[in-house]
Design a protein around this nucleic acid. Structure first.
Lengths: 159, 159
DNA sequence: CAGAATGTTCATTTATATCTGAACAATCAA
DNA sequence: TTGATTGTTCAGATATAAATGAACATTCTG
């Protein structure tokens, strides 16, 4: 529950704005980042209603945003006895967050990318006159290989 | 210059579509990614007109897109004697591309992020009752520190 | 210089993404 | 069961981003 007229409101607003801006860079929609930011700042778990009121967003946005964040593992539900509302808390470990982002968004892309490169390589006709295209395709494949090697290292480095 | 009715058209289309999709993930607009993709596939340098015709995009999009790509260093101008049109070629080194992306888009964000965290820390009043906010702010600062250490390593790994 | 070719800008249009809230579904307490 | 509370969905409204193309600026060529 939000304690109104707290001296921290300014700070919390600034935090939320910071998450909104950062999330923007990662391609999240504003309301989703703000929900995460609010939960990140919150000492106690918050209900969907708390979130709607604090951020002045609609039921729909709150519900959808929490759904996304929960699916991603960036936010966890907390079922509290004697409380009908579902409460939410933020996952705060950067390492776990990054891991989940990689798994959910980057790795699937990399996998489908590998398929694409293979499929494209098959489109190039035989013959020396197509050597250029072959080298081009190969260099894209090299990009893919590098990216695939890079990702696990990010995870290690964040330890 | 594009040789029409080439057997490679299918392959080139697939490459362009792949770049469009990848660029999308990085937050580039479709036309910009497509221009880069086309140049990446092209054996010879292309003019703005070549690009407009091949991709069926407007003059404005082509001009703006090339401007962005050139500013980023993802595409280089090539002034050829006896040719009035400016020609363009793609920067193909993944390492250099990533370096330029980091410099242009990520590092500035990280720097402004550092400022924000500092400013927010100053918003938290003294006193033990605000310890939670302080720890929260500190944990965001730790995120920032980790990110700052991570980026130079990406560059090393891509060598 | 004149006119043609090339390139840029930006107001408008078009397309896309996001948010809203009312209708609906699910759950709970009495 | 019944009514109240909580949560979800999705068609439509709103806001944002991207593409267009005509007007303008610039640069060549003869």
């Amino acid at each position: 529950m939000i304690v109104s007229a707290d001296r921290l409101v300014e700070w919390e607003n600034a935090m939320i704005e910071t998450f909104a801006s950062g999330g923007d860079a990662l391609g999240f929609q504003r309301s989703v980042s703000m929900i995460y930011g609010l939960l990140y700042c919150s000492k106690d778990p918050l209900s969907m209603e708390d979130i709607m009121l604090r951020l002045s967003i609609s039921k729909g946005s709150a519900s959808q945003g929490l759904k996304q964040l929960t699916a991603l593992g960036a936010v966890n539900k907390q079922l509290q006895i004697g409380e009908r509302k579902t409460l939410y808390i933020a996952e705060r470990s950067l390492r776990r967050l990054v891991q989940r982002l990689l798994d959910a968004q980057i790795n699937p892309r990399l996998e489908s990318g590998a398929e694409r490169v293979r499929a494209m390589s098959a489109m190039i006709p035989e013959g020396a006159e197509y050597d250029y295209a072959r080298s081009c395709n190969g260099s894209l494949e090299a990009w893919h290989t590098k990216a695939s090697k890079l990702l696990p290292m990010i995870n290690m480095i964040l330890k």
